Each structure stands twice: as structure tokens, then as C-alpha cells.
Amino acid sequence: MISADIASFICFSGFLLGVVILLILILANSKRPYYNFLLSLCIFSFTYLMFVSGLIWSGLIIEVPHFFRTASPVIYLIAPAAFLYVRAILEEEEKFKLIDIIHFLPALLHFLEMAPFFFQSAEIKIGILQSIFIDPDYSLAMYEGLLPTNVHAFLKTGIGLVYFLSQFYIIGKYKRKYTPLDSYEAKVVNWLMWFTLILTVSYTLLFIGLLINDENNTVQHFLTVLIGIALLIILGFLFFQPQILYGLSDFSESENLAEDIFSKVANKPSLSLSINQIKDYQHNIEEYLESKKPYLNCDFRMQNMVEDTGIPRHHLSAVINTTFKQNFSSLINEYRINYIEKNINSKAWTNLSIEGIGIEAGFKSRSTFLEVFKKQTGMTPSEFLNKASQL
């Protein structure tokens, strides 16, 4: 049996480190991209689980009984948040899709199922906790909601494993499609692989532990500590990988490199780019985009521009951020909208639908096209078409 002191120490350590990581994710990155929100949600869920587990292991839960079972619905958030985080990075998603609500329905339904128990008095919860401390099996036989606790334990781990296997699939698909990866992409993909692997191993061991008939709950206690250690590994990895915490942003942005260029413009020595190099890069980028129109390909990525222009990725990224005052995706979408504005009255486009116009300009989805168009022009495509037809 693992010492309660060791278990509570690991749980509270995970909680404290998790809080630090969350503060960095929320406060340090002013851009707060969508995928950072998803990573924050995943880390928060783990962190809250460790907090409540620490209360239980230390016995402090008796002092704050209303925290009892509150982590149960939150656990359902870990796997979908992790999956959507990986997908958002690899598919360059910039906002939450309405259909993705379905991923969080298990957490919502379980919360509603548990709601009557959450509103029970502290005395009732203390009585249940005291019974569990005497007989741990009493916990697994309880029906605070519609389903017994052990059923939810299997559901959480089973659903989690499905999500994590899906993560491996989309990571593998990305690697096959965009091989060879440049050094920065390789680092990001490597992080996503380790992130997914740690979650998969943890949930697999937890699932096996649930299948073992262990009267003393030794295996379950060990696995609880293992989950805490897994969280510490993930958090430690994040803590020493600032480019993840401060924002990957489509594999393209580097705050340090951007500052590098600004410093160079200010005539500070010991930096890699001269003002003339920056101007040359800017000219090459503009000429390339205007003459080749690579943005009309919906699969066009920064790596393609790196290969076609010969500009190193880190230089390309920094010049776009500082000279064009936006990231790679925003720059490409700007060119796509400009292309539409120039060709809106073209005879070849006469019979195209709104979606068809977006596709012609290189947009992958209707929703992204509508959002970007409205943001840049202040009008919907339909409004713009009506205005253009009157000219």
C-alpha cells in the first residue's frame, strides 16, 4: 500500500505546478489562441483532479466535504480537450466549432446526473466519506447519480483511450502528408506525440487496474499516484518548453525571433538580420505571393513558402510577424480576400455560389471563409456581392 503522505504530496505537487502552468497559459500569452484554451482546459481538469485527490489522500476532504465527487464530471473533459488541442494545432483551427460541443456532452450529462448529490448537506457527505474510509469498496457501490461509480470509471478510461488513439491517427496522418518536417514542426509534432503517449499509457494502466479484482485497492491506489506522476511529467515538459506555453501559433511564430528583428532595426549588434535583409525578404515574399498566387491552393502551408522562396523558416516567420504585422495564416487569408475582391465580377465566377468563391480563393471551409471575409471587409460575402453588382 502506498503511503497516504506520499500520495497526497504527489497530488498537491501536481496541483501547484498545474496552477503555475495555467497562469502562464492564460496570462503570459497575450494572443491566447484557441489551442491554448484547449490545453488550458486539459491541464485544468488534471489539476483539479489532483487537488481533490490530494484532499482525499490527506484526509482534509472531511474539512471541505463539498469538494467530494466534484472532480468526477471534470475528468470527462481531459480526453476531448486533449484531442481537440492536437487537432487544432495540426489542422490550424482558429476557433471552436459548434459541432464540437458533442465532445463535452458526457461531462455535462454526468454533472447533471451528479447535481442532486452536489446539493446534499455537508453532514451527509461527511457520513459517506467516513464510511468510505472504513470500507473503500463502499465507494464503488455508491449511486450518487444514475450509474454506479465503477461504471463511470470504465467509461472515462474507455472513452479516453478512444480519443488518444484518434490523436495518434491524426498525428501520423499529418507526418505522412507533410514529410519532411522542418526542425520547428518536428519539435511540435514530437511534443504532441509525447503528450499523447503519456496520456495513453496512463489511461491504459488505469483501465487494466479497474479490471483487476483487488480487495485492498492497492492497484487503484498505485494508479492514482501514477496519474499524478504522469501529470507532473507533462507539466514539467511544458515548463521547460516555453515555445509551447507562449504559443505555437500555426508552427510559425517566434516571439524571440520577432524581438530579434526589432532589436536589429534599433541598430543593436550581434543579431542575425540586417535591415537590408529584412527589406529583401519582404520584397521576395510579396513578389512570390503576387506572381505565383500559391494561396489559391487550400493546402498551402508555410513549409511550401520556405521551399519555394529559399527563406529559412525562422527568418520567414519573424519577417511576417514584424513587417506585415500578422501571422502566416492571417497574411495568406488577406491575400485570398484581396483576390476575391479583384475577381468578384469575373465572368468565370458568375455562377459560383458563396462557398464556391471561397474554394476558388483557397479557403478550406465555408465557415472560415465567412469569418475572415467579414473581419477584413466589414461585410458578409453576400453583402459584398450585392454592392459589387450595383457598381
Rank of each mutant, 00 (worst) to 15 (best):
L273T: 02
R301V: 00
G247Y: 08
Q303D: 11
L273A: 09
C298W: 07
I278Q: 07
L197F: 13
I233D: 07
R301H: 10
I234C: 05
A258G: 15
F300C: 02
Q220D: 01
I234Y: 04
I311L: 06
L210N: 12
A258S: 15
A258E: 14
S270H: 14
I244T: 05
I234T: 01
N190I: 04
T218S: 14
G247Q: 01
H221E: 02
L206G: 13
T196M: 07
V188H: 07
E286K: 14
G310C: 08
V188I: 13
T204C: 11
P242N: 09
N276W: 11
K187G: 00
G236P: 00
D250C: 11
L257W: 11
L211A: 14
S252R: 14
S274N: 07
P242Q: 10
S254C: 10
Q243K: 14
F195R: 12
L211G: 10
L289K: 04
V265L: 15
E290L: 11
G228I: 01
S202Y: 00
N284S: 14
E290Q: 15
D214H: 02
V219L: 03
L210I: 08
W191F: 15
L273Y: 09
L192Y: 07
Q241C: 12
D214I: 05
T309N: 09
N267S: 13
K279T: 00
I229Y: 07
S263F: 13
M305I: 03
Q277A: 07
R301G: 05
L211Q: 14
F222K: 03
N284M: 09
I275P: 10
I233E: 07
L296R: 15
L226S: 06
L257N: 15
N213F: 00
P242S: 10
I244D: 05
P269D: 04
L238T: 03
V265E: 02
I261M: 11
D299P: 08
S274H: 08
D299E: 12
F251T: 06
